[in-house]
Design a protein around this nucleic acid. Structure first.
Lengths: 112, 112
DNA sequence: ACCGCTATTCGCAAATATGAGAATATGCCG
DNA sequence: CGGCATATTCTCATATTTGCGAATAGCGGT
């Protein structure tokens, strides 16, 4: 890779990628393994950026629109459906894994 | 615990538990750690039974009805929402963990 | 057989997510 | 500055899930 090949559509995406991950090892680390205990929104954003896609591009792959993707990636959004998450995962060659883990004894709801 | 104390409401639940797990070590194992790569429906059923609850009891904890729980535990149901899964998890003193794992190179959608 | 409890399934109203397009920011680069 | 691409937010119609009650079926014990 010598003379800045051809400026493809991923150009702007790389800008975004640099803007977020350039020189932030801990962020990159949390990206490589998408298994951080992060919020769903952040997981989705990380997944998309890691794939080098814009919201619009991912939307086309998933079969929806950019605004929908934006909604899902919004932090204050809790209305995700497994169906949609699966569609996104498939479009990104991933699998959705769901796991229930017991809560530490400190913050239980009731003793029983 | 000597003389079969008092026959509480959990009596019938224990029957169900026996019916499903009696003498099936692998099922019990998959129950202890709820982290098997099972379908969501089976995970929910296992979680509920492990907590020693009927669908009705769980429904009351969650704030819904038994039929709704039954729907969620039905195998041919793919309309789960993270909101509902979280409600159930909280009622059962659990946490929902979502993870995206890359698909093996064999069964990709497209090369890019 | 009956009774009690469970699970499953049906129907419908209400709440919510999605699909879609347009309008408004924000940031980057020439 | 002026394009250009992105991300975000808004509004609407449609699709889907949820809430709830009732009706049915299955199973176990008396």
């Amino acid at each position: 890779m010598a003379t800045r090949k051809k400026r493809t559509t991923t150009d702007a995406v790389q800008i975004l990628y640099r803007r977020y991950y350039q020189g932030r090892p801990e962020r990159v680390r949390g990206l490589e393994e998408a298994r951080a205990d992060d919020s769903v929104a952040r997981k989705l954003t990380a997944l998309r950026l890691h794939a080098g896609l814009t919201q619009r591009q991912l939307a086309k792959l998933v079969g929806t629109t950019a605004s929908a993707i934006c909604r899902l990636e919004s932090a204050d959004y809790a209305g995700h459906s497994l169906a949609m998450l699966n569609r996104i995962a498939i479009a990104l060659d991933q699998r959705v894994e769901l796991r229930f883990t017991p809560l530490p004894h400190g913050k239980r709801l009731k003793s029983a």
